[in-house]
Design a protein around this nucleic acid. Structure first.
Length: 397
RNA sequence: UGUCCCGUGGUGUAACUGGCAACACGUCGGAUUUUGGUUCCGAAGAGUCCAGGUUCGAGCCCUGGCGGGACAA
């Protein structure tokens, strides 16, 4: 089969390419350029020229052809602009999820198709399975075997269409296997440090990066006491009653704060630069315990903080996803009726799966966790699984 | 105006009856991490408001200033 593999210049994609070649496929490497600018990036980090060179070395070593494609323009339009738009609204976007949906598994896929590729492969740690239902193929997106590296979360917005043409050669491997294979095959990336930070843009200094487009605006930091009566303690019975009444909003709506609920403890230079759960960068000292951001209000430009790891403002029982933001990787199992979906959910990469019930209502979905969750942040993705299969996801409201 | 209290790294506090200043937060650096964030490790940073005095030795005692606060009227 003709397979185009996305080579990034890292170990994972190199080994993915090797495995495909070894399995007898006709493999072509494709390197994608997503970003040119260096403003805001940390000095000397992730210059794509170097990565391209490494990708070429890998291709040479594997004796496969390699091409490169500049997708920086659409990347800017579909990922970077979205990022700024979200931050401006006081939300915290997840660019990598978008990058996969919009770039790697869309534009990149089309380019691969033009190169004659029947399938596209990436170095993601996840698995895919196919079975037939009513004579039609159905694809399942499964967690990678290496639970510490499982990257299915980042693919939570993929469609059946996209999945049908994807291959994940690393899904059954552990990271250590990948390193070992790379070493055995003398791939130039065998020792290369894993990349991190926003995909393909490299390691950026986010505050600096954001300041290119978002104006600084001085505002105050308000501390909300942990014993504020805003935080009513809910017993298991209260929760059950709320669920029975169908008043899920009581659990899935963010806390809303007013300045007079607390006291000003400092100043910041723009509420849109902060995200819930953040500790560093507040520049307020003298507290017994560290301060964490518990909410931001870009309208009034106020950052609300709470003291200590266990501040109640940091935890919430549930989250809401608007109807338009609900995505089913498996539309065939989509739940429409009000019967709750009992499943496991994660709200960030590498988070252990959390038991939850999702209640689908006409306006959207209320996800109610068995245990309170820390740092539920609007703009981030919640992905729900049954077993080790990712079946759906959505943007947290 | 009278009495009382306080004045320690960027911030908030600590240092028993005097023995070369501790902790937390913040800041900076590193590790972890294909989002943000979290977490972990490490470092820098004050010679204790100022001027005198007592003492072998003072952040801690004494005197006088300066600064802030409280009570008093």
């Amino acid at each position: 089969m003709k397979v185009v593999v996305g080579l990034s210049g890292g170990v994972d994609s190199s080994v993915a390419a090797y495995l495909l070649k070894k399995a007898g496929h006709e493999v072509t490497g494709l390197f994608m350029i997503n970003w040119h600018e260096t403003t805001g990036t940390l000095s000397g980090s992730c210059p794509w020229e170097e990565d391209l060179l490494i990708a070429q070395l890998v291709a040479h070593r594997l004796d496969i052809p390699v091409h490169s494609i500049d997708l920086s323009e659409p990347y800017r339009e579909r990922v970077v602009d979205y990022m700024f738009r979200e931050y401006r609204q006081g939300r915290t976007p997840n660019p990598d999820v978008l990058c996969n949906r919009e770039i790697k598994f869309d534009l990149f896929m089309k380019v691969a198709e033009n190169l004659g590729g029947e399938m596209v492969a990436t170095g993601h740690y996840c698995r895919k399975e196919m079975f037939e239902k009513d004579g039609m193929p159905v694809y399942r997106l499964l967690a990678g075997v290496d639970s510490a590296k499982d990257q299915s979360y980042f693919l939570c917005q993929l469609s059946q269409q996209q999945l049908s043409r994807s291959l994940f050669p690393l899904g059954d491997l552990f990271k250590s296997d990948v390193r070992r294979i790379a070493g055995e095959q003398r791939l130039p990336t065998a020792q290369k440090k894993d990349s991190q930070g926003i995909c393909f843009v490299g390691k950026v200094n986010l505050p600096l990066f954001l300041q290119q487009k978002l104006e600084p605006k001085q505002g105050s930091i308000v501390e909300i006491p942990a014993d504020s009566d805003l935080y009513l303690r809910q017993t298991a019975r209260d929760i059950r009653r709320i669920i029975n009444n169908g008043t899920f909003e009581m659990l899935s709506t963010p806390y809303s704060y007013e300045p007079q609920m607390g006291r000003a403890v400092g100043e910041h230079n723009g509420a849109h630069f902060f995200t819930i759960g953040q500790r560093k960068g507040l520049n307020v000292g003298g507290m017994k315990e560290p301060l964490f951001v518990i909410a931001t209000d870009v309208k009034t430009n106020i950052v609300y903080v709470g003291q200590g790891q266990d501040h109640p403002g940091l935890y919430r029982r549930g989250l809401f996803i608007k109807k338009k933001d609900i995505h089913w990787v498996r539309p065939d199992v989509a739940v429409a009726d009000p019967r709750p979906l009992s499943c496991c959910v994660r709200i960030r990469y590498r988070q252990p799966l959390q038991q939850a019930n999702i209640f689908f209502v006409p306006e959207g979905a209320h996800c109610i966790f068995e245990r309170k969750q820390r740092g539920i942040t609007s703009g981030q993705y919640a992905a729900w699984y049954t077993g080790d299969e990712l079946v759906g996801s959505g943007v947290i409201d």
